[in-house]
Simulated scan of single mutants.
Amino acid sequence: MNLYFRLFWLFVWRMRNISSIGFLETSRMAHRVWPSDCDINMHLTNARYPALMDLGRTYMLAEMGQLKPLLKLKWLPVVNASEFTFIKDIKPLQPFHLDTRVLGWDDKYFYIEQRFVSERGLHAIANVRGLFVCKGRKISSQELVAQVGFDGVMPQLPAAVEEWKLMLQRKKAENL
C-alpha cells in the first residue's frame, strides 16, 4: 500500500517541484525506509528495491521533461532484464537516495544504472535493460533518442554491462 502512496506523492508533489536534467545526467530521488518496507531481518526487503527503482525511472523521465510527451505518444517503458548487487543493508527509518541514470543504448535496448546511497555509503547497485513499446510495437532506441531531442555522442557502455549483455544473449540462446 505504501507504494501507492509514494506513487501518488510522486505525481502530486514531486512533479510540481521537479528539477530539470539532461538526457545523460543523474536523477536523484530522496526516500526513507518505512517499517512496512522491512523484512524479518529489519532492513529494506529485497523485494522493495525493484518497486522503488520503477519510481526512480519514472522520476528520471519527468526530470528530463519527457514523461508527459512519451505518455502522450502512448510509448510505455518495459523492463526486459535487471541485475542487482546488494552491498549493505538499509535500516528502518534510514534516509537514502536513489540515483538513476542512462548508461547508454544499443539498437533495441536502453541500459540504466540505479544506485541506493545514504550517508553510510553505497547500499546496492542495479542495472536495468528496457525499451519502450506502443500498441505492441517496439520503439527503437534511435526513435526514442530522436524524440527526446538528444543529439550528442552515444556513450560507450561499461565493460560490466557489455558482459551482462553477452550473458543475457547466452541465456536466451540456451533456453529457446
Rank of each mutant, 00 (worst) to 15 (best):
N2K: 00
Y4N: 08
Y4L: 09
F5C: 02
F5S: 04
R6A: 00
F8T: 03
W9Y: 14
R14K: 15
M15C: 12
R16E: 03
N17K: 14
I18H: 07
I18T: 09
G22Q: 06
G22Y: 10
L24T: 02
E25D: 15
E25Q: 15
A30C: 09
V33P: 11
W34C: 00
P35N: 03
P35I: 10
C38V: 03
I40Q: 08
I40A: 10
Y49N: 01
A51W: 00
G56A: 12
R57D: 04
A62E: 03
A62L: 05
Q66G: 01
Q66W: 06
L67Q: 10
K68G: 11
L70A: 09
K72D: 06
K74Q: 15
K74S: 08
W75P: 06
L76E: 00
P77C: 06
V78T: 11
V78N: 05
V78M: 15
V78C: 08
V78A: 12
V79C: 05
V79I: 14
N80A: 14
E83S: 13
F84W: 13
F86N: 02
D89G: 02
P95F: 10
H97Q: 12
V102Q: 10
L103F: 05
W105C: 11
D106T: 00
D107P: 01
D107W: 11
D107S: 14
Y111Q: 02
S118C: 02
S118G: 07
L122F: 15
F132L: 15
C134G: 01
C134Q: 15
G136K: 08
R137T: 14
I139Q: 09
A146D: 15
A146N: 14
V148M: 04
F150A: 00
D151A: 13
M154R: 14
M154P: 02
P155I: 09
A159P: 01
A159D: 09
E162Y: 08
W164D: 09
K165Q: 15
K165C: 11
L166I: 09
L166T: 12
L166D: 13
L166F: 12
L168A: 04
Q169R: 12
R170A: 10
K172S: 06
K172V: 07
A173D: 15
L176A: 12
